[in-house]
Design a protein around this nucleic acid. Structure first.
Length: 945
RNA sequence: GCCUAAGUGGCGGAAUAGGUAGACGCACAGGACUUAAAAUCCUGCGAGCUUAAUCACUCGUGCCGGUUCAAGUCCGGCCUUAGGCACCA
């Protein structure tokens, strides 16, 4: 069979017959399947595109046969940097290059037989389309959702261009390697942060995969906390900090403002001015990458000013540091070094006080649980973590009566320091006398337990000291002490396991892994009215207090920021705004849209980083829509994300020249039922698109607040070396080559069979050949077809099972197992001398969504009507049930035999059969049968003793 | 560091809801057909042990423990890899 000929033949038939053209309306139930439209790059279609387009194509073909009105559209997301770069180099308009690339892509897609509705095709670069992107921008503007703001951008001083974060990856310009710096620029912004909560809540009205939802939730980054106002000493000024832990306010020992904070200049004292200015200057030189680099040592300077802590009127110093970000919260923080790692690090470096306000609170369990009938005793205790003089071992004592293993510990006497108490206890309990105490740990903790050896409840405040022995010099210990404890040295790797009490394990952990800030939960201390409370109660109480005293309130913050909507590029949608000296920024009149990109031959950016459009004076100079005076156009263009934020709406009514899409059309299609795309787009693209839709919904322009129901993401097709395909690695597979050599159907089957659709999978040409063999087998099977109709009796069961399996799998992305099921059916047909027409026909129909060309051809040769006009086969549940089945027989959970059972067999019969098996008898003989578990149709397990 | 996903033969991967691990395919080996090759067909294919060959047995789904009659699947604790986020107070 000449697959080139038949592929062309059927592609033409489908197109001429308009089989895949969707109508807006009719009696059929609608179903909207969408794949992310591609950026038509010069490289042509990637085998990765083929994977997801085939998957959704299979689903679309099945759904159509099941009687749905399926919309499966395709278009082009063609604005973007590569076309612009190409234009700069070759001095041709990017739209020419885009036209070429689209032609290539479309040809490739057609050669693969995808059932797209090409009548709805468009490109985001078509003026008929971007007219509406511009129109929607004007709606954003008119509703106060678009505004201008000055924000820092990545700037390459060498190329003199603004770089996207992607192009500035690693802090250097992608093209020339120059260090990227920050430059202030006035940009259009969309108030996306206003929609944070709606975007979060809206996820409940979607059926996105859980990991997709999580990606969105993380990106939105909601955190609940409080605002706290701090007065600045000696002024009438106040600044506000955002904190999620207002309960630790008593532990705030300093404040930090972002270097960009508006108060910095005002509050800095003369004495510190020079230093502060210097620090601010250095920050500007750094780019975002350097500033946020992990493990970077904290830097900062003191402003000379003091803030007043509202809860206790303590004066605490105000620093500036770049670890506080101007763009999050209020751009200023209260620092609680005892309980925040960053603050701790900063405090250590600048020698600032660290004040504990939360203490870990251990409560005994089991035999050491507090007893209500026992006396409560309270004491301060020292715990000594003492290292061996030469080895990596720690000194512990084992209680001879109870077997407890602990560090040396004991009560602190009146008038005694913690260190003195430690040295005394060590001497008394172990006799070691050559001790150096290195330090006392910063944080005390509580331990509460019933002390069996004293028969009282103990409530301990533990002070931990860390030290070592200089030598093993020992003095004699009292016989009484010797009878209570025996000393032991425990290796550091076993220490945590061997110690008996959680509190001592905790001491060991902090000793071995570093002390740092105390970030765990506990009870409040040193916090007056909060003392003894847990975290949540303390937060609630503090918020109430702050609110009452008008120096703070509950506050929710989101990481998600407003959308920077300007790009200093040529190849994007022009922003339809005009600047007039008299009237300020004015929107273009809607009837003047679209604002077309000019036809010129130079696309170089300007010296000062303006969009290339700024050089095109004819285009820039215009008149003010308001006063008619001379004015200038905005020269920035929209980001790539703009056009793709609403394209799925346009597909519902692709050629409407009155509206972006009619409400009738949108109400008919309602929403995208199934949206497939790459994992890399699940955070940003999806969030932008949802934001766009929610905005339109709020102004009555779309029928639903969420217009996408299910979102799934596909895995990548990797090179055969298991790495991402790239030219430089030489592992790129061109789908054209595969189609030419093996045919479109083979490529489609292979890409569906290669592995779990949602997982990455490496390319394997060997495996592809296996799929070719499968197709060849299907073709050969035609020779076995006899004149009988109806299914062969002995195949009936398998056929019904296969229909069920394929139907389910194509609806749940189990493409690889669907292909596998079809291979099993084909093998079964192959085993027979002859097969009926219907045996063969069902195989063709079930395989058709994945391999449409060859199956239509064989089907036609057999004299059936076209598959694309047929109904999807149904299965009879009754007939999918096996009459006979082989199940395993286990003895004590180990497989010993298998038996054939029939559906009609009762449990008793099955039990009987199982027990009669030779090998079962071997393992049950002479043993008591405790019970026999029969799981119908699955397994028998005989439990013996 | 945090979040997410995933670790199963030589390889890609199967395994409803805990119930015969390795479906299906690839690769490999042996054989048939052929003058020969390709194509096709047949047989074998986790490891070990045993056997003349079978049968049987033991181990086996990243590691350690647990729950259960029964664990790739559930629970606890780790390790590794990939992707995303990253000083978010």
């Amino acid at each position: 069979m000449n697959f080139k000929e038949i592929e062309k033949k059927w592609q033409d038939i489908w197109e001429e017959g308009k089989y895949f053209v969707a109508q807006n309306g009719g009696n059929k139930e609608k179903y909207y399947i969408l794949v992310e439209f591609p950026y038509p790059s010069g490289a042509g279609l990637h085998v990765g595109h083929v994977r997801s387009y085939t998957a959704q194509d299979a689903m679309a073909r099945m759904k159509r046969m099941q009687g749905f009105n399926v919309l499966y559209p395709m278009g082009w997301d063609a604005f973007g940097a590569p076309a612009e770069q190409y234009a700069i180099k070759n001095h041709i308009h990017p739209k020419e290059a885009v036209k070429e690339n689209i032609k290539t892509f479309k040809g490739q897609m057609k050669s693969l037989g995808f059932s797209f509705d090409w009548t709805r095709e468009f490109s985001t670069t078509d003026p008929e389309y971007y007219k509406w992107t511009q129109w929607q921008f004007l709606q954003f503007y008119k509703h106060g959702m678009a505004y201008k703001d000055t924000i820092p951008v990545n700037w390459c001083p060498n190329c003199k261009t603004v770089l996207s974060n992607e192009d500035a990856a690693g802090g250097v310009c992608e093209r020339c390697g120059t260090k990227v710096v920050q430059k202030e620029k006035s940009q259009w912004m969309l108030r996306m942060s206003d929609y944070s909560e709606d975007l979060l809540q809206g996820l409940n009205d979607t059926n996105f995969a859980e990991k997709v939802k999580l990606g969105q939730i993380n990106w939105i980054g909601k955190s609940t906390g409080a605002h706290v106002d701090f007065k600045i000493k000696g002024t009438d000024k106040t600044f506000t900090v955002f904190t999620t832990r207002c309960d630790t306010l008593y532990g705030a020992t300093y404040c930090v403002l972002a270097p960009e904070h508006e108060y910095v200049d005002e509050i800095t004292t003369e004495e510190h001015r020079e230093e502060v200015l210097e620090y601010k200057k250095n920050c500007l030189l750094k780019n975002e990458m350097e500033r946020t680099e992990l493990n970077k040592e904290k830097t900062g300077v003191f402003t000379g000013a003091y803030a007043i802590n509202p809860v206790n009127n303590e004066e605490i110093p105000i620093y500036i540091s770049d670890y506080v970000l101007a763009s999050y919260g209020t751009g200023s923080i209260m620092a609680v070094p005892a309980h925040d790692e960053r603050d701790y690090e900063f405090a250590k470096k600048f020698n600032l006080p660290i004040k504990q306000v939360i203490a870990k609170n251990f409560v005994g369990t089991g035999s050491s649980a507090l007893r209500s009938d026992k006396q409560d005793t309270y004491r301060d205790v020292v715990v000594a973590v003492i290292k061996h003089p030469t080895e990596e071992k720690y000194l512990c004592v084992k209680n001879n009566k109870f077997g407890w293993i602990n560090f040396v510990m004991g009560g602190i006497e009146k008038e005694e320091t913690v260190v003195d108490a430690a040295i005394r206890e060590i001497k008394e309990e172990t006799g070691y006398s050559d001790i150096v105490i290195d330090h006392e740990m910063e944080f005390v903790y509580f331990d509460n337990f019933y002390a069996a050896h004293k028969d009282v409840n103990r409530h301990i405040t533990a002070h931990t000291v860390v030290g070592k022995l200089k030598s093993l010099e020992q003095v004699a210990i009292s016989s009484e002490e010797a009878s209570i404890n025996s000393l032991m040295w425990i290796d550091k790797d076993k220490l945590i396991d061997e110690l008996s009490t959680p509190a001592h394990k905790y001491d060991a952990e902090r000793t071995l892994n570093g002390e740092g800030a105390m970030v765990e939960d506990g009870v409040h201390v040193n916090s007056q009215e909060l003392d003894g409370l847990n975290k949540q109660d303390a937060i609630d109480k503090m918020i109430a207090w702050l609110t009452e005293h008008k120096c703070g309130e509950a506050k929710v913050n989101y990481k998600m920021r407003d959308w920077i909507f300007s790009r200093q590029r040529f190849w994007g949608e022009p922003i339809p705004m005009i600047y007039c000296e008299k009237c300020g920024w004015q929107p273009m009149k809607e009837e003047d849209l679209p604002l077309l990109l000019p036809d010129v031959a130079e696309y170089e950016p300007t010296e000062n980083g303006e969009s290339p459009l700024a050089n095109i004076t004819d285009w820039v100079n215009t008149t003010c829509p308001c006063c008619g005076g001379a004015a200038r156009r905005e020269t920035d263009t929209m980001p790539n994300w703009a056009g793709s934020s609403w394209y799925f709406l346009r597909f519902m009514d692709a050629h409407n020249d009155k509206e972006f899409a009619s409400m009738d059309a949108m109400k008919y299609w309602q929403r995208v039922d199934w949206y497939n795309g790459g994992m890399e787009h699940t955070a940003r693209h999806l969030l932008y698109a949802r934001f766009w839709v929610q905005f339109l919904y709020n102004y009555g322009l779309v029928p639903n607040k969420e217009m996408i129901w299910t979102r799934v993401s596909h895995g990548m097709v990797l090179g055969s070396n298991n790495e991402k395909m790239s030219k430089s690695k030489g592992n790129v597979v061109n789908p054209d080559d595969i189609v030419r050599e093996y045919g479109a159907d083979t490529l489609r089957v292979y890409e569906m069979f290669m592995g779990d659709y949602q997982q990455d999978a490496p390319w394997s040409t060997d495996s592809l050949r296996g799929c070719k063999r499968f197709i060849d087998k299907v073709i050969r099977l035609k020779d076995k077809v006899n004149n009988e109709s109806g299914y062969s009796k002995d195949l009936e069961n398998l056929i019904h099972k296969t229909i069920k399996k394929v139907t389910n799998d194509l609806g749940t992305m189990g493409y690889n197992t669907a292909v596998s099921a079809l291979m099993i059916l084909a093998n079964a047909l192959d085993e027979k001398e002859t097969i009926t027409r219907d045996d063969y026909h069902i195989l063709l129909v079930l395989l058709n969504p994945i391999a449409p060309h060859v199956t239509e051809e064989l089907n036609e040769q057999l004299g059936y009507s076209r598959i694309c006009e047929s109904e999807w086969p149904k299965y009879d549940e009754e007939k999918t049930i096996d009459n006979e089945k082989e199940i395993g027989v286990q003895v004590n959970g180990k497989l010993r035999a298998s038996i054939k059972i029939s559906v009609s067999d009762s449990e008793e019969v099955i039990k009987e059969k199982a027990l009669q098996q030779d090998n079962v008898i071997k393992f049950t003989e002479g043993k008591e049968i405790v019970k026999v578990i029969v799981i119908p149709g699955r397994i028998v397990n005989i439990v013996v003793k």
